[in-house]
Nucleic acid binder design. Structure first.
Lengths: 195, 195
DNA sequence: CCTTCACTATACAGATCGGTATAATCCAGG
DNA sequence: CCTGGATTATACCGATCTGTATAGTGAAGG
């Protein structure tokens, strides 16, 4: 599960964990290019020497940041899906519920993958597959869930759910209107009831 | 029309136009913080002296970039709305058609406002109201169009259209599946037919 | 005891960042 | 003709960027 493990895998010492924690917060809050390694090291209470001993280069911190976030989100979502009612429609709604709770906890500025994509243009960047991988995975998830509802229109329903979900994340980040994810959930509910 | 005019208004000499053109391309393609003024000046075929004589500071270039893009998009959309059939549903679909054409022409990497928002966290940044202003304006537009279809549910329908539209822009930028804006258009069509 | 490893502290290198200074050139309008 | 604004060319400033070098501390484990 999770994204490609060959990308991550560095020695996660206590200091490295603090670095990743600080970097994640700063990258998400201020943007990747706007945050320097000196600031990350200072916020983590770690010297630059240690930072570079663990991560090698800034790019690797970015990769770890996104890979870790991806991993955490999938685990978080899996927990919600496991706890959901077995009915297919309920499982779809559980995805929106998970997103809503996740956003309230860690991401008031929209999707970290979408935001990172705005700064990482080069498809050969090692973090690129993490970003697109998560979105592909989400589309597959929605499509798989849709297959249990209207098998003959699973691809279509999956895509519609994906659009609603992504739109809600953007709307949440830009504060377009109140509780967009909750609203998207209701739209998904209506959509599933009609199908 | 357009966004707040007090924000823009610099002397648009030929060199300034070239600077703005180069900056727009580079900012959108590589991100705002990743692009330096030296590169912008070089790509525009202009000295840094000229660049600073026109714009004063980099932040102002960013503001002009977003304000100009916002203005162009609204004009582009207005053209499509004027050319559309007067039927309310047709006008909604014209918005999606405009977005689809716009994306094919200038924005294969998603919405420039959403991308800029990923890099500009500070709400006191002079470019901030341009970003949120365009999104608010789009929501109002969708809601106004929805009012001509189902007046009693205009707010709801407007929000749903907004989510579909934003989701499609993200999906288009991240290449989640083929022609997401065209797909969103069809979903909007089905939604309007049901209402 | 002694090696190993994570870590601190500090200083520095080379490049690039945003922004400025000085001086010269080109050209249109009065 | 001459002035003034737009522009070029070039050199520079201090700050910050990613990344490295050197030297030393503290603790766990064989």
């Amino acid at each position: 599960m999770g994204s490609d493990d060959r990308l991550q895998r560095i020695t996660m010492t206590p200091a490295a964990r603090r670095v990743l924690e600080a970097a994640a917060r700063l990258f998400y809050e201020r943007g990747i290019h706007a945050v320097g390694v000196d600031l990350i090291a200072a916020e983590a209470g770690v010297t630059k020497k240690t930072l570079y001993d663990r991560f090698g280069c800034k790019e690797q911190i970015v990769v770890e940041y996104l890979a870790d976030r991806d991993e955490r989100w999938r685990a978080f979502l899996a927990g919600h899906l496991d706890a959901a009612q077995p009915a297919p429609a309920a499982r779809v709604l559980a995805v929106f519920d998970a997103s809503r709770e996740w956003a309230a906890q860690h991401s008031h500025k929209g999707c970290s993958m979408v935001n990172a994509h705005a700064e990482i243009s080069d498809p050969s960047h090692p973090a690129y597959p993490i970003i697109t991988g998560q979105k592909q995975w989400m589309l597959t998830l929605f499509t798989d869930l849709a297959r249990d509802i209207t098998p003959e229109r699973a691809a279509h329903l999956g895509r519609t759910l994906m659009l609603l979900h992504e739109g809600a994340l953007v709307a949440q980040g830009l504060n377009i209107f109140a509780d967009p994810i909750g609203y998207a959930r209701e739209q998904a509910h209506a959509l599933l009831a009609a199908a």
